[in-house]
Design a protein around this nucleic acid. Structure first.
Lengths: 156, 156
DNA sequence: AATAAATCATAGCAAATTCATAGGAATAAA
DNA sequence: TTTATTCCTATGAATTTGCTATGATTTATT
């Protein structure tokens, strides 16, 4: 994800989280959730969705059951899936661990600092925020949408 | 900036901030700073830099003096230029004011919430952070790079 | 065994975006 | 008039993104 490119979420990441939340909500009794169901509920092209869910499976969040009456279930409870993990799986650029200094050290003091001060700071916030927010938290927030938003406090 | 895609800064924004900082630092006695100077100091293609500085001028941060011995100077002190303004000028997606709900309200409760909860939160942080950090602050941090990093606290 | 329903995997493509390169017009100082 | 600079626009290659499409594979059901 480029903070560039826009502080705008990519469709892939957005739909990935949506799909995972949909699976979490609709597989509560152990039944599987098919991509066709998700596609209809969330109004997404099914084939496109399948590609995205592929990433979720490769990331280890869901497992798929092939065949008739197949579908997806979570591999672990939504309380133990953190948004940071999802972002890393679906978009490996979005959460960089570190911003390494540039190689030629002579002239780019300013340039290196822009990265470390500004983006490092924002990236740290984003990482911490997503590391502490689980899929279950997100779903809870969806259900409480009308209630007052909490204030979060973070040390950066 | 797409948190998509990557939480990675675009070259344009990065070089824009770098160029502006360079101008701020090197025009202290009222002298102009030419794009050739900046390009050499920061090791950037001059022609590419000119395009970026064009955006800075259109954003009202610098004014250019044409002709021999021309160059750029800030239009106001670095203390009064905030990073949020630069981001908005160079990348109009990076700091969205709001995340408007999607149009068809029936099925996409989850989808709307992903945007408002997750990206709204991160975007708010980013906006507040960049609204309170001036170009002068950034330059100061560059000069204190070896010193211990401060901890910032924010309410989101 | 046959059928149907679903995942799984890959290829491809149009549009947009990004990162530059290039050429030259306009302007101002010397 | 020369030189140095900003200013402006066109162009293109490479990448990314969002999406469509095709079909192989697997499993449950009849």
């Amino acid at each position: 994800m480029e903070v560039t490119a826009d502080m705008k979420i990519s469709t892939r990441v957005e739909l990935g989280i949506v799909a995972l939340a949909d699976i979490a909500v609709n597989s509560e009794k152990g039944n599987t959730v098919s991509s066709a169901e998700i596609a209809e509920r969330q109004n997404i092209s099914q084939k496109y969705l399948e590609q995205i869910v592929l990433g979720l499976r490769q990331g280890g969040f869901v497992k798929g059951q092939k065949g008739s009456h197949g579908g997806y279930v979570l591999t672990r409870p939504a309380e133990k899936i953190f948004l940071s993990e999802i972002l890393n799986a679906l978009d490996n650029n979005i959460l960089a661990d570190t911003y390494e200094a540039d190689d030629d050290q002579e002239n780019n003091n300013i340039r290196a600092s822009v990265n470390s001060c500004l983006w490092g700071n924002i990236n740290n916030y984003m990482r911490r925020f997503t590391e502490q927010m689980s899929l279950a938290d997100l779903i809870k927030e969806c259900q409480n949408e009308t209630t007052e938003k909490k204030n979060y406090m973070y040390y950066i």
